[in-house]
């Protein structure tokens, strides 16, 4: 397939033979010679049981794993942005100043305002983070990532703390923003539906490796009632070790 060869020659992320180990020697191997590549602009969701090493992989890509034993090679683009499970807005900076944290110049202010408007927070530039709802805080964090025009967006359960309704809204928003800005995305989630709704490709991490690599061939927007959706869902849940009688 043409797209596959392209994916191999030009990648936004290329990980090979990644090993990560925790604890005293010999330690517990969490990632065991893991290989992964993500194409530019590709949206990849990463599923896996709790403790399977999803966050470990993401932190390795973000360069946040100091003092962790391991080996392997990681190639990531220059501009990487991370969205955490909590918004990590600095409470002592107003929303716009949080979005612009570490950026200089007059132009970036306009960029920051535009990014806030994109996530639906126009007019809240001068609010303190404590004055925002959980969903709004997470949207501000998204704006903080977007304004940096990342080539790779790493997100570790960014919607995990949000209610179901807000989450669905955030899905639409994230999908739209990624279409417009075109970063490669690695989204860690424990929600199979979220993965299928959003991703071009869903990975399942198991025993330290990518056990399932499933492209999702469904047109956007995706419906939960689509029989193919249910098929993917059943398949992924099975890969995660969930026996589900209700899945037809």
């Amino acid at each position: 397939m043409a797209t596959d060869t392209e994916r191999l020659t030009e990648a936004a992320v290329r990980v090979s033979g990644l090993v990560r180990r925790f604890g005293e020697r010999p330690g517990r191997t969490v990632l065991d010679h893991l290989d992964l590549s993500i194409a530019p602009g590709e949206f990849v969701a990463l599923l896996g049981r709790s403790g399977s090493g999803k966050s470990t992989l993401l932190r390795a890509l973000a360069g946040l794993d100091y003092d962790v034993a391991g080996s392997g090679s990681i190639e990531v683009p220059g501009r990487v942005s991370v969205v955490f499970q909590d918004s990590r807005l600095l409470p002592w900076r107003r929303v716009l100043d949080n979005v612009l944290l570490g950026l200089d110049g007059r132009e970036v202010v306009a960029g920051g305002r535009a990014a806030l408007a994109e996530v639906g927070l126009a007019g809240r530039e001068r609010a303190w983070p404590v004055e925002l709802s959980g969903g709004e805080q997470q949207r501000a964090a998204l704006a903080r990532s977007l304004v940096r025009e990342p080539e790779l967006l790493l997100a570790d359960e960014p919607f995990g703390a949000l209610d179901a309704l807000t989450r669905i809204r955030m899905h639409g928003l994230l999908r739209e923003l990624c279409r417009r800005h075109g970063p490669a995305v690695l989204l860690v989630t424990h929600d199979v539906d979220e993965a299928i709704v959003l991703a071009d490709r869903v990975l399942v991490l198991d025993a330290g490796r990518i056990a399932v690599d499933q492209p999702i061939h469904l047109p956007q927007p995706r419906s939960h009632r689509d029989p193919r959706f249910l098929e993917y869902r059943f398949q992924l849940l099975t890969a995660l070790g969930v026996e589900e009688e209700t899945a037809a």
Binding site: A62, G63, L64, V80, S81, V82, F84, D86, R88, L90, L101, G102, R144, R148
Partner: peptide, 12 residues
């Protein structure tokens, strides 16, 4: 420490 991580990923 969460803010330290943020500062690192943002490249301050």
């Amino acid at each position: 420490n969460r803010y330290v991580e943020l500062a690192e990923t943002i490249g301050l």
